[in-house]
Amino acid sequence: MPQFRSILLGTLAASALCVTMVTPLAAQDDGVSAQTVVADVNGTEITMGHLILTRAKLPPQYQELPDPVLYTALLDQLVQQELLAQSLEGEAPGFVALALENEERNMIAADVMEQVVGDALTVAAIEARYEQDYASAGATPEYNASHILVETEEEALALAAEIEAGADFGALAKEHSTGPSGPNGGNLGWFGEGMMVKPFEDAVKTLEPGAVSGPIQTQFGWHLVQLNDSRDSQIPPLDDVRNQITDQIRNEAVAARIAELRESAVITRVEPDKIDASALSDYSLVDE
């Protein structure tokens, strides 16, 4: 979209550069509402609601300016925009109607999403999810292990013999392991059940801290595994996982509502193999 067709035609810093003849409106003694008229431009009213929505789109650094400063700057901006809009000769460009349709669709959808999330995101729902995913699960074992990954069983057996003879596991991992943890002495850090492929995890569970397994084959190659330590996981307090739980409930609620709407909707789509998708980059199609 051309630069001069941006919805916000000027910055707050430049908002006072346009000089026009202004007649003050009568003072508003009653309570202010979204319908309160704050300016009239050749018979077209600008309301407090217009200012509120314009302010909501400002970058954070402008949001912090004092209200009187913002009020004056935003009112100047909307008056200038209205003057320019009224000066248009002929029909409005085609992209204007399309942009308004997109904006309306987006705003209505966002409002519906907030309603859906508001209904789902209750204190009881958050506490129930915490109980389900964390509290009731109890402590689970976690392991800290290192490994050496090589391509063949023969290589693994040779390295196992060196370890048996007293060679340092970490040093051999740095020298021979083909896995990404090799430069770190093969250390994989802490992990819980289900985070490693089954043959690897099964081997780890049989080891005592400090012990090294025999060669283990997985789809990645052959491993020698050393268990460094083990512990029981700690159940996190609700406040530590509240944001995570909130995001899960929010996403699930919206996804469920969309799925429900899809089931009762009649939707036809043109897939990309049936249309020239490169048209997405052709702005001239809407600039008419």
Rank of each mutant, 00 (worst) to 15 (best):
Q3C: 07
Q3M: 08
Q3Y: 13
F4Y: 06
S6K: 06
I7L: 05
L9M: 03
G10Q: 13
L12H: 05
A13K: 12
A13E: 13
A14R: 14
S15V: 04
L17R: 11
L25D: 06
A26P: 11
A26I: 14
V32G: 02
S33E: 08
S33V: 05
Q35V: 14
V37P: 08
E45H: 14
R55F: 08
A56M: 09
P60M: 13
Y71S: 07
T72E: 07
L74V: 09
L78A: 10
Q80D: 15
L83S: 12
S87V: 04
E89T: 04
G90L: 05
A92T: 11
P93M: 03
A97H: 14
E103I: 09
E103F: 12
E104H: 06
E104G: 11
D111E: 15
D111V: 15
Q115A: 09
L121D: 05
A124N: 13
A125M: 03
E127W: 12
E127G: 08
R129N: 09
D133T: 08
G138Y: 01
G138R: 02
A139M: 02
T140Y: 04
A145Y: 01
H147P: 03
L149P: 02
E151T: 09
A161R: 10
E162T: 13
I163W: 02
G166Y: 04
F169S: 01
F169I: 01
H176K: 09
S181E: 11
P183G: 05
N184H: 11
G186L: 04
G186I: 01
L188H: 04
W190S: 01
F191A: 07
F191S: 07
G192V: 07
E193S: 02
K198E: 09
V204P: 01
K205G: 00
T206N: 02
L207M: 00
E208P: 00
P209E: 01
A211R: 00
S213W: 00
G214D: 01
L224R: 01
S230A: 06
S233L: 04
Q234T: 05
I235Q: 08
D239C: 06
D239F: 13
D240N: 09
R242M: 12
Q248A: 10
R250V: 03
N251E: 14
E252T: 03
A253I: 04
V254F: 05
I258R: 13
A265V: 11
T268V: 06
T268A: 11
I275V: 06
I275T: 02
S278L: 09
L280Q: 08
D287H: 09
